[in-house]
Amino acid sequence: MNELVLEVKFVSMKKWLLIGVALGFLGLFIVIPLLAVFSEALKKGIQLYFAAFNDADALSAIKLTLVTAAISVPINTVFGIVAAWAIAKFDFRGKNILITLIDIPFAVSPVIAGLVFVLLFGSQGLFGSFLAALDLKIVFAVPGIVLATIFVTFPFVVRELIPMMQEQGTEEEQAAMTLGANGWQMFFRVTLPNIKWGLLYGVILCIARAMGEFGAVSVVSGHIRGLTNTIPLHVEILYNEYNFQAAFAMASLLTMLALVTLGLKSLVEWKTKKYVNGG
């Protein structure tokens, strides 16, 4: 009896120790930086905080950031679903190489990601004279920013879907086919409902990254105020103008977007659990 009590005590002590260490680590590495952003943003009071957003350049940066995300995320989502289908549901040679290539944007330095598009579409680049002849602008304009964003957010949706679809196997789809469904019916009635929460999670991460990308976008943007500046670039500008409070205010906007995104994600996961338990 006594021994059992002791053991329970020991177990719960160990448990709280582990929880303490884990939360301490999260606090040190994540919560404190988060607090730093907000404390700097609110340093000079709430009024100045909101004043930071009431500026033509800030508004245009917010708009461009939203437009960029609105274009790049759907493109990568479509790709993500299609590629995950091919990779998870079929066996073929070179699968590992394909997956590794999809992973590459995780590892490529953002600076390089921007540079390659300059090398391709810049006026000294491979397609430079061709584009100049047509009077098309890609780098130092919105298309370049969108391309760079697509590049860096490329793996998020696929990587989320592949393990999920692999785990689910092909039985349900097989059954649907046997019952006489055509390809699209099968996809929309069976596959999509099965992956919808994972898909949403991937999309959410993709949005967050698309809005927050700095390095790659910085190389291709041209930094024209009110025209080709995204929120992260505008933060840098404000910071460089010694306008730290406004810089952190804009940064807090992105941080809040990140937090909202993560909130959504938790909701998604909670729903998934309910869905799994219910089904």
Binding site: S123, Q124, V139, F140, G222, H223, I224, R225, G226
Partner: peptide, 17 residues
């Protein structure tokens, strides 16, 4: 319209289009 950045990076941007 204004664009600001490091002098070298700005020069490169003009060279590249």
């Amino acid at each position: 319209k204004q664009s600001h950045g490091g002098s070298g990076a700005q020069s490169r941007a003009v060279i590249d289009g």
